[in-house]
Design a protein around this nucleic acid. Structure first.
Lengths: 334, 334
DNA sequence: CTGTTAGCGCCTTCAG
DNA sequence: CTGAAGGCGCTAACAG
């Protein structure tokens, strides 16, 4: 491994000068610089980044913790983070917890140990006290998911309650009154909010909330499928189903079809997220499109501010979703 | 930032002892160890990993370079890598090139600069000379994709030619003679091999290869769609289409449907990969299931051997795929 | 079993 | 504009 002193020797300068050529080339005389650069080239010198990181106490790396790499919702956010990070000279590394809360805390240690300059969490399913503590001491941003007390940690997310209200209202406007909901895991604020938005919309339109229409899924295709089967078996089954994620909506549609019924003809289904696949699926999903790319990008911008030390107030940044009307919920029933 | 010397002072021992407690606890007397651990706890001491990495010249981190984080084929391999890496105390970081070859070389620099202990590449679309050179000097394993001369770099992959032959033969056995192919990008060995396997199968069964049945896709849904539209417009359209990836197969099916035709009734379609979604898609895809998890796991095992310095011969590890017969290619035409 | 010592390679004053 | 010198925090001999 050739090191800086080798370069210095060959170029007949000091290591300080080599370092300067690398860091602040403008402060070095043209001629000297040339000598040094030649030596670097000749020796194929690569600076030892480990030593540099150690010395500088920074890594130019940020860690993104995602709960499930196989869920494209998260991958799409990562693309936005990656875009903004690369633009600013940061490297992105991904931590995948596979839904194990403990692993998320392992990753937080990396932040504490300065193995990375900052961290973006795509899940709030962690020990909250620890999270808040870490977020106050180190650069950390939460995206998509959030805490009940949303101003404890800087957060970028959509307004799940409002968006959920909107999509439910869309079904109501289409003439539906018997609308069921398949929620995500209710230990997530984000899922509770989607549930609330749904309930609020019904109430505001004087529609009675029927409790056997409220089912609990876990974001998986299978849970969308199973819950729908149960809903269809009800004495008075719903005419519309609002699933809290596209994947569950797809499961719901599969279940409807399995009973020989048609979507949207016999029953309308809407999802939430607008992952890539929702357009391809048949029928194409009517869903609430989250601004994934922007969420990632915005989160990285805030994180960078924190890293470079601008005193950023903890804040909750709300981004706008967009209702995508496609085939799965059909047209006016009235 | 509290450091090791602080702990040493509080525990009234030397830093060497503190270090030993952390590294080789067995070599320290029980009593001393207790004192040190107490001091660590009291001060909430976190070792400076940057310093440690620097000192040890290792990071216990491996870098996985994937061409497209949104393509689940790669994510599924990563899960296997992650599993094996975590088991062995390695951290996985992901580099996403978004199909830009240059970025892959940027990541190789990280390896050269010892920012990571090893590297797993999920694409061979890079400068080959550079790749071979790096692979000979540093721990590197290629997965899924491979070089023309496949023994230049340690590689884990399936036998694309054989698997492609198998799935083509499956169509032939079903009675098809007019079989079209939608290939992936032909600058990838993997795609050329899939094309070859297809051609070999036809030839072995004395089926004339019709050149307007050979179309070139790029792994995208859209390219599957467009190419299929072209195939259907032929004077003598095929009765079956073999797409070199599931996503393209889905595009193909969409195109068939858009013409008012049915799959598999009017035209059979098969894919390749067996991503999660292929089961959900309608009709469910007949496809060649790659052992993604095992590929990732095996690659990580080999990489670890290289990292710890076992002289591993460059080798090509071949894993077995499995034909999944589902709905999209129907039954015997005979 | 424990302490002393000597760096790892780089960056950053501080002088000149 | 350049060089000398010190030290970041940790670990690995080497003694004792």
């Amino acid at each position: 491994m050739t090191k800086m002193s080798d370069v210095a020797k060959l170029a007949k300068v000091s290591t300080a000068t080599v370092s300067r050529v690398l860091q602040k080339p403008d402060t070095v005389k043209e001629e000297t610089k040339k000598k040094v650069l030649e030596a670097i080239k000749k020796l194929d010198y690569q600076p030892n980044i480990l030593a540099r990181n150690f010395r500088r106490l920074e890594t130019k790396t940020i860690l993104v913790v995602m709960p499930n790499i196989l869920n494209n919702v998260f991958s799409e956010i990562v693309v936005g983070i990656d875009y903004e990070a690369t633009k600013n000279g940061y490297q992105v590394i991904l931590g995948n917890t596979m839904l194990e809360e403990q692993r998320a805390h392992g990753f937080m240690n990396h932040l504490k140990q300065k193995q990375v300059d900052g961290m973006i969490l795509l899940t709030a399913r962690v020990d909250i006290d620890d999270l808040v503590k870490v977020a106050n001491e180190y650069p950390l941003v939460l995206v998509s998911d959030y805490l009940e007390e949303s101003d404890l940690v800087t957060t970028v997310a959509i307004n799940n309650m409002k968006d959920s209200y909107t999509i439910t209202e869309h079904l109501i406007n289409l003439g539906h009154k018997k609308i069921a909901h398949i929620s995500g895991p209710l230990d997530m604020s984000i899922c509770r909010d989607r549930l609330s938005g749904y309930q609020d919309a019904l109430m505001d339109h004087d529609i009675h909330i029927q409790y056997d229409y409220l089912t609990k899924g876990d974001y998986s295709f299978q849970s969308g499928y199973d819950n729908t089967l149960n809903l269809l078996a009800l004495q008075n089954p719903p005419t519309a189903i609002f699933a809290a994620s596209d994947i569950m909506a797809m499961g719901a549609i599969k279940a409807v079809k399995s009973k020989g019924l048609q979507v949207p003809h016999d029953i309308a289904v809407v999802g939430f997220d607008d992952v890539e696949f929702s357009k391809i699926f048949e029928p194409a999903l009517t869903t609430m499109a989250q601004p994934f790319f922007d969420m990632g990008k915005t989160a990285m911008q805030l994180l960078k501010q924190k890293i470079v030390g601008e005193q950023v107030q903890n804040q909750f940044i709300e981004l706008k979703s967009e209702l995508k009307t496609r085939e799965s919920c059909g047209f006016n029933l009235k």
